[in-house]
Amino acid sequence: MSHHIVQANNLHYTYPDGTIGLSRINFKIHHGESVALVGSNGAGKSTLLLHLIGSLVSTKGDIRIGDYPLNKKNLKAVRRSAGMVFQDPDDQLFMPTVFDDVAFGPINLGLPEAEVEERVMEALDTVGISHLIRRSPHKLSGGEKRAVAIAAVIATMPDILIMDEPSSNLDPASRRRLINLLKTFTHTKIIATHDLDMALDLCERTIVLHRGEIVADGQTKELFLDEKLLAMSGLEKPLTMQGCLVCSQVKLS
């Protein structure tokens, strides 16, 4: 299926002030793949994500989402097939109630009212937060906010889920719930994160960014064993792959 491919060809981006954001970015993500995007602060993860949703336009090179090259003309179609979950749920939940917020996308798709409500219920059920439907976003906990933000995105039924730091600011239990939830999704997933344990749990493939360039792209487990690579890119081995403090045995992965 050529359908849900995300492809970047020799992508370059320079900020207006001259700083280089991205250079020589090449990758191809296939349908159903789960890809982690890792790298130190300022490595270019967010810049890359902003390119994928057409918010930043590359200075050189292009992006193809599905069958379309990403340009102004296709922007709407692309945004319909690629849904983005933002890092700060407060930026994403702008409507007065959870229902309104989750319904925002489906309404904009021009669906009839009954179908909008159906979609909202379905999305909330999937994420397991139907009970929050009447609540206001400002009264939700961090974990709940994140869940609503995810529901709001999947209510538009995108093929590709793009997530910016989905596990940040979550307590361990909420984080675990999130990981289990994401495991059930069959969407193509692109997840930018510092949480390498989550990457290990969720993504079979990882792209390592460093100073705006891709320094590694391959099997997550293999990359995370490469200590030299990790050290160079400002990362460290996921905790689950480090030796156990108690029995000092290296867990084989």
């Binding site: 902003l50 949703i53 918010s55 709407k76 945004r79 319909r80 849904g83 983005m84 933002f86 700060d88 930026d91 994403q92 702008f94 409507m95 309104d100 319904a103 925002f104 996308g105 309404i107 904009n108 798709l109 009212e113 909008v116 409500e117 709001a152 995105v153 538009t156």
Partner: peptide, 19 residues
């Protein structure tokens, strides 16, 4: 700016409707 982007990602075209 981020909010606007989030709105655009979900098909915002200048009108906000509520059911």
């Amino acid at each position: 700016q981020r909010i606007h982007l989030a709105m655009c990602c979900r098909g915002f075209d200048g009108h906000i409707q509520m059911i």
